[in-house]
Nucleic acid binder design. Structure first.
Length: 260
DNA sequence: ATGGCTGGTAGAACCAGA
């Protein structure tokens, strides 16, 4: 089973590349973040028509929003409000084999890496704190994927020294993400298959003149699994070509294949 | 030269992303 995750930055605006990705890569499941659509606006029929009849969504007006598209039945869908303000940033399901799949969109955290000056940064850390509480009591095999908005390792950014004070790579964020990882001994499948310090990015700013020439990327999107699932993960790939498709997202899709 | 852009929404000299 191939499970993909992609911050799509508006699912309606990017239906063409979503369709292209589903046709070319044919994942069994695609987790989307930043769908930017209310539930009533979600392109349900078009996506079902592409061979993904099982769809769960958690959307809101204008911002955020997550969804899971699947070829296989999904059960027990529910969402956690780790942001504690009603924002649509999580949806989770159980797969036919019993494995839990959790799709999360961690808040970006604003510009200034300081709780006092920038409440959004505090919200981001608090969001992760609630995830740690949840993760610490997990007892079932689980896949946690999505846009974590943190690049934890030095080799997860184009320049560690230049980004050390930039939100997404600051020490407090990296430490907090490490506590989340330790709370369930999560396996970081990206680095399981592409060990540091090999280059591995999933996001490039829209502002670069040519994203691939400057290559100022960060690894913000992740696929984590419970330790009991480690041996069932068979590959992990990121699809940089999608960053050059028409009207691209600033994130690229990541795909993990599991032997189930 | 990490903001130089982007989408959604309103109809902004906007907001948020990261």
């Amino acid at each position: 089973m191939k499970i993909a995750s992609w911050n799509i930055n508006s699912v309606r605006f990017r239906m063409d590349i979503v369709a292209r990705f589903l046709k070319e890569m044919a994942p069994d499941i695609l987790c989307l973040q930043e769908t930017k659509a209310e539930n009533a606006q979600f392109p349900m029929d078009a996506l079902k028509g592409l061979g993904y009849p099982h769809i769960v969504i958690n959307g809101q007006k204008m911002h955020h929003g997550v969804a899971i598209l699947s070829k296989v039945p999904l059960v027990e869908d529910r969402s956690h409000d780790w942001q504690d303000n009603g924002e649509a940033r999580h949806i989770g399901v159980r797969l036919p084999n019993g494995v839990l799949l959790e799709n999360v969109y961690v808040p970006a955290g604003g510009d200034i890496p300081d709780r006092e000056q920038n409440p959004k940064f505090g919200q981001k850390l608090d969001f992760l704190g609630r995830m740690i509480d949840w993760s610490s009591s997990l007892s079932e095999p689980t896949i946690l994927t999505g846009d974590f908005n943190i690049a934890p390792l030095e080799s997860d950014v184009w320049n560690h020294r230049q980004l050390i004070d930039v939100v997404s790579h600051t020490p407090i964020e990296v430490e907090t993400l490490a506590r989340l990882q330790a709370s369930h001994n999560w396996v970081d499948l990206g680095r399981h298959f592409v060990p540091a310090p090999e280059r591995l990015f999933t996001w490039w700013s829209y502002r670069a003149k040519d994203w691939s020439v400057s290559d100022r990327g960060r690894r913000l999107d992740h696929m984590w699994a419970s330790p009991s699932l480690r041996e069932q993960a068979v590959s992990h790939t990121v699809h940089e070509a999608c960053r050059d498709w028409d009207k691209p997202s600033d994130h690229i899709p990541i795909v993990t294949e599991f032997a189930f």
